[in-house]
Amino acid sequence: MINATGLMKSFGKTPVINDVSVSLAAGGITSIVGPNGAGKSTLLALISRLMRADAGTVTVDGLDVWTTPASVLARRLSILRQDNHMTARLSVRDLVAFGRYPHSQGRLTLEDKAHVERALDYMALNDLQHRFLDELSGGQRQRAFVAMVLCQDTDYLLLDEPLNNLDMKHAASMMKLLRRVSVELGKTIVLVLHDINFAGYYSDQIVAMRDGRVLRQGPPAEVITSEVLREVYDMEIQVREIDGKPLALFYE
């Protein structure tokens, strides 16, 4: 369970997160959606202690993220940001193995190696494991980074726009993979997504944000509605239900 209470964050004088209190239940996939500048990525950064909130607290399973030692938290919660500008030439396998750092401080045990294999398997990276990251396509690199946080084997996985730079096929397979991870391995996955239809199709919970506030939180059927989307995006968006999933027609 992730609990955020009274979070505030400003950059200079501009408030980016304005009194956000939200609690995310353990298990399943939660997606944070909203227009540009809504504060989605900032909220994720505050939850994962990459940024310090001006006010308010975040707890993960009762641990305050700002006061808990970083190494303890790194075994509970992992975060992947969208901009992984790489200058380091690492092989995929080495990168994934670094996910074990919080557990083994670099000395890989047999158990760690099993985790590495499993993560490579899950992300279908076995054939690429000895390639350097700078030799991969954007989609493959994205998979390698997700494999790394998977290998970290934390209860909570926070991913900031994991579908960035992915085409339809890879985006869909990434979401299916995350789905599998949450069901089979019992992980709690929190995503920032831009595409509300991907969010609606694959998530168990949706958090809709605008102007640094959380406007609505609930299952897709309750959040992906014309009324809520009008409030969030300032757009008239028709929503159809297909096979029990809400589909927003925002192309008009």
């Binding site: 994962s48 202690r49 990459l50 030692p69 970083a70 190494s71 303890v72 938290l73 790194a74 075994r75 992992s78 975060i79 992947l80 940001r81 992984n84 500008h85 790489m86 200058t87 380091a88 690492l90 670094f98 996910g99 750092y101 919080p102 401080q105 670099g106 946080v149 970290q152």
Partner: peptide
Amino acid sequence: ADRFTVAGMGREFTTNLGLN
């Protein structure tokens, strides 16, 4: 060496892995 490799991946990457 491992710490430096991790630090070479950036501040956020390092924080995620629980390193100062």
